[in-house]
Computed example of a mutant assay.
Amino acid sequence: MNILTFTTRFGQDAETKYTQAGKPITTVRCPVDSGWGDNKHTSWLTVVLFGERGEKLCPHMRKGGKATISGELRVREFERNDGSKGTSVEVIMREIELQGDAPSSDQQPQQNRAQAQGGGQPPADDFETDSDIPF
């Protein structure tokens, strides 16, 4: 079984891009600490969400926000523009538990400011049906 579960704070705002076929792919970079004292080490993981779920979660995954994430660990090799090889450690997200709000900023959309005032849950009227709920 290949399942990784970790608690983190988002290292950046999530970003959604679209394939040529119009399918959404949402990514966010997250630091994960291990060890302690002089042996403490921070690894950076890229969390990947495919489809509509990622689009709906994207505004809620803001830099500094805390979450527990579970998913499949994947190491992907790629070629850089200069021809050198690179490696990316990714987590294909299956589950997420948002644990509080990201620090407020003037750049946050109005919806996120309203969410911060509402105790971390999106307003009930944002979703038309239960299937619209992103988590």
Results as ranks from 00 to 15, higher is better:
Met1Ile: 08
Leu4Ala: 08
Thr5Tyr: 05
Thr7Pro: 03
Thr7Ile: 13
Arg9Ala: 13
Gly11Asn: 10
Asp13Ala: 05
Asp13Cys: 06
Glu15Gly: 04
Tyr18Glu: 06
Thr19Gly: 00
Ala21Pro: 04
Lys23Val: 11
Pro24Cys: 09
Pro24Ser: 08
Pro24Leu: 04
Thr27Pro: 03
Val28Ser: 04
Cys30Ser: 14
Val32Asp: 02
Val32Leu: 12
Gly35Lys: 01
Asp38Pro: 10
Lys40Gly: 03
Ser43Asp: 15
Ser43Arg: 15
Thr46Asp: 12
Thr46Val: 14
Val47Gln: 00
Val47Trp: 02
Val48Gly: 14
Phe50Trp: 15
Phe50Leu: 11
Phe50Ile: 00
Glu52Lys: 14
Gly54Cys: 04
Cys58Ile: 00
Cys58Asn: 12
Arg62Gly: 03
Lys63His: 06
Lys63Ala: 10
Gly64Phe: 05
Gly65Phe: 01
Lys66Leu: 10
Ala67Leu: 00
Ala67Val: 01
Ala67Pro: 02
Ile69Ala: 02
Gly71Val: 08
Glu72Gly: 05
Arg74Met: 12
Arg74Trp: 01
Arg74Val: 12
Glu77Pro: 04
Arg80Lys: 15
Arg80Tyr: 08
Ser84Thr: 15
Ser84Asn: 13
Ser84Met: 05
Gly86Leu: 08
Gly86Cys: 08
Gly86Lys: 08
Val89Lys: 02
Val89Met: 14
Glu90Leu: 05
Ile92Thr: 04
Met93Phe: 05
Met93Thr: 04
Glu95Thr: 15
Leu98Tyr: 03
Leu98Ala: 03
Leu98Lys: 03
Pro103Ser: 01
Ser105Glu: 07
Asp106Pro: 00
Gln108Ser: 06
Pro109Gly: 15
Pro109Arg: 08
Gln111Phe: 05
Gln111Val: 10
Ala114Asp: 12
Ala114Met: 13
Ala116Cys: 04
Gly120Trp: 00
Gln121Val: 08
Gln121Phe: 09
Asp125Tyr: 10
Asp125Cys: 03
Ser131Tyr: 14
Asp132Ile: 07
Pro134Ser: 07
